[in-house]
Design a protein around this nucleic acid. Structure first.
Lengths: 198, 198
DNA sequence: TCACGCATGTAAGAGGTTACATGATTAG
DNA sequence: CTAATCATGTAACCTCTTACATGCGTGA
């Protein structure tokens, strides 16, 4: 069948309900899709391809106040392919973090600019953290009785947990690095003042 | 100048020493490059391009026991470009995790297969964690006096820390999920045994 | 009236993977 | 003799981003 990762990502979403390409594009951009993203220009052709493969069926929905839309739903074939894929072994993950890459070169940087960058990044990740934490706490409150592993909410729970933990780690990390640059700048300032006196 | 992310990744490595394309390819695959990866087929043309742009200079090194190699070193132009880039603001990061994507669809899975997947992933990330932790502890031991922000070891330290924290999070997460599937399977087994008696 | 949200698409190009291609030396 | 390591490259292909393209309805 040859289904791409994006294809599986779309099946993952469509296993939970019927959506249009537009809906899916929204879910696969900020903020929900923190573990997989795609633009509409990639999604629309992929949906068309998957419909041809019989993984999805499409239904045109006419709307009076808005443009018509194409509602996609997963077929039994699609669901079976997803079920197959979901527990298949994963190869070594391809990590790519521009921030960690910059961190590896940070010893070259102007300290004031470096401080600015990490303060900025701390704020960014703190905002993400707050957002995921809010959703996570809400989910926890609504399902205090405990979740079954075959409940979609269980999947929501673990996914959000990962997001929370991920962002929490970044916030602490950025904060500590920013502190080091602050200390460095203060020490330099004190030294400069001392030199002036002499 | 128009330098790609890969270009900056290469400059980041070449700021620390002279390397051949082969050396760089090794550093940008497992295990060192956990925050940026590239294959040799992408690296060789990129190096050639960067040399033309005057960011690098190349030097042919003849070796008797092995094939000759091309040693690249960063130029002042290259170092300046790197210094510029390293504190430039970063756009929203593109996160892509196949495992978290699968986690979001895990409610569809066969519980036994899901258990296998997460046990497998726990082992994988535990191995990565052990490796990063070892390097991190060694670095800590060698630099007990504290590090200056302009020391490359400071960059090593924070990069490894991020890796350790990242992997630690995955290990705990996989472990907890595997436990949930184990409990689910045990409960099912008990129910099946009870049903048999009746 | 102007921007924004809804809604769907195409095209060009950059970025990245897999496979093809060659060839020497060394360790098992 | 066979596999692995060192060493450099190219070609085909897939994935992903950016930009182009259209058009309606609503609220400021």
């Amino acid at each position: 069948m040859n289904i791409s990762k994006l294809g599986y990502a779309l099946l993952t979403l469509l296993a939970r309900g019927e959506f249009s390409g537009y809906d899916l594009a929204r879910q696969m951009s900020e903020p929900i899709g923190f573990f997989w993203t795609a633009r509409h220009s990639q999604i629309y052709p992929e949906l068309a391809k998957m419909e041809e493969q019989g993984l999805l069926v499409v239904q045109r929905v006419e709307q009076h106040d808005r443009p018509d839309k194409k509602l996609y739903s997963i077929t039994e074939t699609g669901r079976e392919a997803l079920r197959q894929w979901v527990t298949e072994p994963i190869g070594p993950p391809v990590e790519r973090s521009e921030l960690v890459l910059k961190a590896y070169a940070i010893w070259q940087a102007d300290p004031e600019q470096a401080l600015r960058l990490f303060r900025e990044q701390e704020a960014y990740h703190a905002a993400k953290l707050a957002q995921y934490e809010k959703e996570w706490f809400e989910l926890k409150a609504n399902t205090s009785a405990g979740l079954r592993v075959d409940d979609p909410c269980f999947a929501d729970y673990i996914t959000l947990w990962r997001g929370v933990d991920f962002e929490r780690g970044y916030v602490e990390w950025c904060h500590w690095i920013a502190e080091q640059f602050e200390r460095h700048l203060q020490e330099k300032k004190q030294k400069d003042e001392k030199d002036e006196k002499v």
